[in-house]
């Protein structure tokens, strides 16, 4: 199972991953499986300030619309525009071409899960 969740990333209980090296944020493999086929996404604009709990992206899958919120506040950097025309990349390559945005985190307290903690959370 660990191969589905890269060791170098941090995770949230809402199935987002965060790369502390380059600040990219995405949806975990488990998260995209839970959503099902993603058909639409609304992305934020670069420079937008996102408070913890605010909507970062709005994702619609075949059955659910999900306003995904980061667990920490940050400023949106780069945005993966490719997803607007190819939202299915979130399903097929959640850690690569399906990543969402770069979020320059402004919170000090990250409170995210390690890969082991996330896997244990998913198995609960």
């Amino acid at each position: 199972m660990t191969k589905d969740y890269p060791q170098e990333l941090l995770y949230t209980k809402k199935h987002l991953w965060y790369d502390p090296e380059n600040c990219w944020v995405g949806i975990t493999k488990n998260g995209q499986e839970e959503l099902g086929e993603v058909v639409y996404i609304e992305l934020p604009e670069p420079g937008e300030q996102i408070a913890a709990g605010d909507t970062l992206v709005l994702i619609e899958s075949l059955k659910a619309t999900y306003e995904m919120a980061p667990p920490v506040a940050g400023v949106v950097g780069e945005v993966n525009r490719q997803l607007s025309s190819r939202p299915e990349l979130i399903n097929s390559d959640p850690y690569g071409a399906g990543r969402l945005v770069r979020l320059e985190i402004t919170d000090v307290d990250l409170q995210m899960l390690t890969v082991q903690e996330y896997i244990e959370f998913c198995c609960e």
Partner: peptide, 23 residues
Amino acid sequence: TCGVHEPSINGKKWLVSAQLRNS
């Protein structure tokens, strides 16, 4: 279309639902 947990009888749905969630 055929969705997860949307059951049918004789190939026809009797229950349809959709969800929105945020934090």
